[in-house]
């Protein structure tokens, strides 16, 4: 409906107030979907439980069905076998949606620089807020959610135009040591070559 109004009236009407109203509503009624894979999931539970009580910040209605949620909290490392699942669940969520990458493993792979762990989910899907820590304390998660609420209130639009502008996944540049290893292997360096060091 919002797009229809836009079409008819063109540029003659400013929707700032409506945007702000919608963003205010969205920011204060986030429905998180906990995509909890590992340790951070337990801290996510702690955050929702008695002592830290996430419901004070308007986002305690955890829903496990992606169709009912607008905030995905990826808590814990994501590995090769899990990443297609994560992407599929992200695509199932209705717009507008946001993603919090909770913990060092989801942000960058953390201590698990191994063959199986994806080195940061932001390489393969969009992320809005990163929370550092291994695992982050519940206070840090709450801070992350407050930051996301601010982000939504400041930049949110009623028809989610802001997402269309962002076409690339955010995050650090995607060239790293592993890329170098693969280039070396492509150029014919072999493992049994004594000068070849696959780790360094």
């Amino acid at each position: 409906m919002a797009t229809q109004i836009n079409k008819q009236l063109g540029d003659n009407v400013f929707l700032t107030t409506l945007d702000a109203a919608a963003s205010w509503g969205r920011a204060n009624s986030l429905w998180p979907m906990p995509f909890a894979t590992a340790c951070c999931g337990i801290e996510l539970m702690s955050t929702a439980a008695s002592k830290h009580d996430l419901s004070r910040f308007g986002s305690e209605v955890m829903r496990f069905s992606p169709r009912q949620c607008d905030l995905m909290i990826v808590a814990g490392r994501v590995v090769m076998k899990m990443l297609p699942v994560l992407q599929r669940i992200w695509l199932q969520m209705p717009e507008p949606k946001w993603c919090i990458s909770m913990g060092a493993c989801a942000c960058s792979g953390g201590v698990f620089d191994t063959y199986a762990v994806v080195q940061g989910i932001d390489r393969f899907m969009p992320v809005d807020v990163y929370i550092p820590g291994c695992p982050p304390r519940p206070e840090q998660l709450i801070r992350g959610i407050i930051d996301l609420q601010e982000k939504i209130q400041k930049g949110g639009t009623i028809n989610a135009r802001e997402f269309k502008l962002r076409i690339l996944p955010e995050g650090p540049p995607r060239f790293d040591e592993d890329e170098l290893i693969r280039i070396r292997e492509r150029n014919g360096f072999k493992l049994d070559d004594p000068t070849y060091d696959p780790v360094h």
Binding site: L91, Y115, R166, I181, E185
Partner: peptide, 22 residues
């Protein structure tokens, strides 16, 4: 032992979802 700790790039071999697509 002849398999490197960081793998042979299997962990990078996935499609990328951008904001515009999702």
């Amino acid at each position: 032992k002849d398999y490197p700790v960081k793998g042979r790039g299997e962990r990078h071999n996935f499609p990328v979802i951008t904001r515009a697509e999702s």
